[in-house]
Computed example of a mutant assay.
Amino acid sequence: MEPARPTHNEQQRLHALHDLGILDTGHEDRFERIVRVAAYVSDCPVVAISLVDEQRQWFKAKRGLAVNQTSRSESICGHAIQQLEPLIVEDTHNDRRFADNPLVTGPPYIRFYAGFPFSLDSEHLLGTLCVIDHHPRELTDACQRALSDLARIVEHELIMTQQNVIDPLTGVFNRRGFYREVNSYLTDDVVIEDQHTLLHFDVRQLQGVNQRYGKHAGDKVLKEFAGCLTDVFGDLGWIGRLEGCEFAVLLIQQDVDAVEAQLDRFYLRLCRRLSLERYPFIYSVGLAHFSQIDETVTLETMLLDATSDTRRYAVPEETRHIG
Rank of each mutant, 00 (worst) to 15 (best):
A99H: 07
T25N: 11
R111V: 15
T170R: 11
H124E: 12
G218A: 02
V46F: 00
D100T: 14
F118V: 05
R272L: 01
G323H: 06
P102G: 05
V256Q: 15
Q69E: 15
Y185R: 14
H79A: 00
R204W: 00
E74L: 00
H18V: 10
D305R: 04
N101D: 06
D294S: 05
G208W: 13
G214F: 05
I293D: 08
A288G: 00
Q262L: 13
G244C: 11
S291F: 10
P6M: 08
Q12L: 07
L103K: 09
R269E: 08
E123M: 15
R56K: 15
H124S: 13
L236D: 05
Y213I: 06
V41M: 09
A217C: 07
H196G: 06
E318W: 12
L263W: 11
N9M: 00
Q12W: 03
H18C: 03
G240N: 04
L250T: 02
F116W: 08
R111A: 12
S71M: 07
S148P: 05
H79G: 00
R137G: 03
E246H: 12
D100W: 08
Y313Q: 04
Q254H: 04
E85T: 10
I159V: 13
E90R: 02
T319K: 09
Q55M: 07
G227S: 07
D167A: 12
E300I: 00
H321N: 09
D19L: 13
G21T: 04
A217R: 10
D91R: 01
T310F: 03
L268R: 14
D95F: 01
V131Y: 01
P280V: 07
H15M: 06
M302Q: 10
Q211S: 04
G208T: 08
V256N: 14
V154F: 06
I252N: 04
T298A: 02
D294T: 03
I293L: 15
Q144F: 01
L169K: 13
L20P: 05
P280Q: 08
S119A: 15
I252E: 02
C271T: 05
V47Y: 05
T140Q: 04
K220N: 11
I282Y: 11
C130K: 09
R13K: 12
Q163H: 14
L158T: 08
D202I: 02
A226N: 13
S50C: 01
T25A: 13
G171C: 13
D100E: 15
V89C: 00
L120T: 11
Q162H: 10
Y113G: 02
V165A: 11
F178W: 05
Y113V: 05
F112I: 01
F233H: 12
I239Y: 08
I282G: 10
L103D: 10
T161Y: 12
F247A: 03
E317D: 06
E155T: 14
L126R: 10
L139Y: 03
H18G: 03
D202V: 03
L242Y: 08
C228M: 12
R72G: 02
R269L: 14
S75W: 01
D167T: 13
G218L: 08
V232I: 15
R5A: 12
E246A: 02
S275I: 06
L84K: 13
D309N: 14
S119T: 15
V165K: 15
T298L: 04
L103G: 10
L206T: 07
R111D: 14
Q57P: 03
N183V: 07
L158A: 05
